[in-house]
Design a protein around this nucleic acid. Structure first.
Lengths: 96, 96
DNA sequence: ACTATAGGCAAGTGGTGACTTGCCTATCAA
DNA sequence: TTGATAGGCAAGTCACCACTTGCCTATAGT
């Protein structure tokens, strides 16, 4: 639902997570934690990131695949592309 | 700032307001109130809508022009177009 | 078997944001 | 001027959300 997408994007930390995933897909929870700390100085607990990932996953912005004891996370930009055009005016006025 | 745009979009009522403004620009506060009530059944106070408009305006998603005792509100989609491409991967993006 | 790693579940806390209420200012019409 | 309309300001309430803490499960390595 679009509601979940907007809610997911509302938090700056979750947007940072998307930033990391767009750089490299297939990161685990611990990898994301480490990168947020080292690159952005965010001192968040592992559970905090885990909850953020759950929100992103419920919005279908992130998809995860389990492999042994690892859980890899992938970015899914499809919901973004769908909600974008909601308020973009049809180019009826700009047409010559 | 992008931060303000995402925060503004986080609330469903504010998204409804954008929906109304994309339909017709230049609506006053009272017009927006009336349309939210009649079309969406939202029983919100005038002040609530006023505060929402202030948030949208600080995000530059809505611009207002005063005329006598009326204040008309216009939709500005430029901030939307700027934040969209943030996570869109290279192969789905257009060359500048 | 034992231990460390990777992750999950659930209750509790603090702060922010949405909404209301009450009162105030400014503009227009009679 | 009086009254009605359009809007603004400020304080207060309430619920939700981000984050923590503590404990638990599962997989991999030795």
């Amino acid at each position: 639902m679009a509601e979940d997408v907007f809610k997911a994007l509302a938090d700056p930390t979750r947007r940072r997570i998307l930033d990391e995933l767009v750089e490299r897909d297939g990161q685990t929870l611990f990898e994301i934690c480490a990168r947020l700390v080292t690159k952005h100085g965010l001192g968040l607990s592992r559970q905090a990131i885990s909850q953020h990932l759950a929100v992103l996953e419920s919005a279908d912005l992130v998809r995860s695949r389990r492999q042994g004891r690892y859980k890899f996370h992938d970015l899914n930009t499809e919901p973004l592309e769908r909600i974008i055009t909601r308020w973009l005016k049809r180019d009826t006025q700009e047409a010559p």
